[in-house]
Amino acid sequence: MPDELDAVRTFRSDIPGPSTDAWARARAAVAEVSGNAAHRAGHEQRTRRRWPLAIGAVGAASGTAALVSVLVLGGSQAAFAGWSATPSYATAEQTAATQSSCQVDLPTLLAQGRWTQVAIDARGPYSMAVFESGTTLASCLTGPSFTTVQAESLTSDSAMVSASGGPAPGAAASPVGTLSSGGDIEQLLVSHFSEAGNGPYTLAEGRIEPAVSAVTLVLGEGRDVTATTGSGWVVAWWPGGDDVTAAEITSASVTTTVPMEHVPGPTPPSPGRRFPGTGTAVPAGGPPGGA
């Protein structure tokens, strides 16, 4: 028998669902707080377009990483203005622009075949893309006026993470990387670079268990940086040279905080294992020194 609650339930029950404009406005609001102006503009023009996945599928790579910092383009600006500790949604336009900018430079970095983008981490006006080509990985940071590319040449006959080349003209510093692991983060390679116009920055990229749904990296100075995760990858970067001390890892709805422990090295190579036992990277042509 109907009662007063039924009467309330029928009241204003003919209110329609949200219009396309309402969807677009909400998407724009979320994009704004995530610091992604390009995403916001895109949604103002095209309503109800799905956010693209941030991460693509990737095959396992084995061997050791050799870091190369080779290319810095464009002018200077304030130190990574607009950078956000929380990644935003990479729009299709942002992804395409990043691919276009980076893939122009990738062939000049290493003589490799086709590069496939496996991850993209968007923060404000910046995009960090990770590419794979065979056993080689490359990271490409693009900003409003610059593009820098780093490559990790993966070889099976080396046990060291080392830089195999010096910075190209315009690059401000040599890269240094450390490998660490913790919890469901199998391997996390943290590398320090510098961009000519913005100063030092740090890149963290690595492999995670497929069940991991979120990772927040805790930096040395207590700052938190939310990483982009998916398809077995974790990617994040931040201005400055802070290292990762711990990670908050969410898996199967459970979040745990684990310390990130450096993998001791150098050790003998371990065939079939990604980034086999390594220590601090030693850039070619100079000792480790950070950014």
Binding site: V30, S34, R50, W51, L53, A54, P87, S88, Y89, S213, A214, T216, T226, T228, T229, G230, T250, S253, T255
Partner: peptide, 12 residues
């Protein structure tokens, strides 16, 4: 199963 929404794709 309810999940956290920290990851941007989960929030989407």
């Amino acid at each position: 199963m309810a999940r956290r929404i920290v990851d941007p794709r989960a929030f989407e």
